[in-house]
């Protein structure tokens, strides 16, 4: 399942996409994220019949994603946000 966390408002589209089929819930992105946007949960809240841990975006932080992700977006020496870089299964992508 492609889970798009984020929002679109007058200023643009801000979404983090997590591919739950690729995500193995290793937690590398959770550890790496400087803003604690990502969390590991025991059961996917959007797929109640499927047991097993998965990474989701934190509910409160999703609504201000543009600002929460700022530490990774504004540095000139990184080309990709740290969560995307550390993910070994290529499960995370950003829309902006």
């Amino acid at each position: 399942m492609l889970a798009n966390y984020g929002y679109s408002d007058g200023s643009g589209d801000y979404f983090i996409t997590i591919d739950t089929q690729r995500c193995n819930a290793c937690g590398a992105c959770v550890m790496a994220c400087p803003s604690q946007v990502l969390v590991t949960v025991d059961e996917d809240p959007n797929d109640p019949e499927n047991d097993g841990p998965v990474v989701v975006a934190h509910g409160d932080r999703v609504r201000k994603l543009r600002y929460e992700c700022d530490p990774c977006k504004s540095t000139a020496n990184t080309t990709m946000p740290i969560c995307v870089v550390v993910c070994k299964t290529f499960a995370i992508s950003h829309s902006w």
């Binding site: 399942m1 798009n4 929002y7 679109s8 797929d47 019949e49 999703v62």
Partner: peptide, 14 residues
């Protein structure tokens, strides 16, 4: 009826 891709916009009510 199993979700394969979703998007929810609950920040902006436009």
């Amino acid at each position: 009826g199993k979700v394969t891709n979703f998007l929810m916009n609950d920040k902006c009510a436009a």
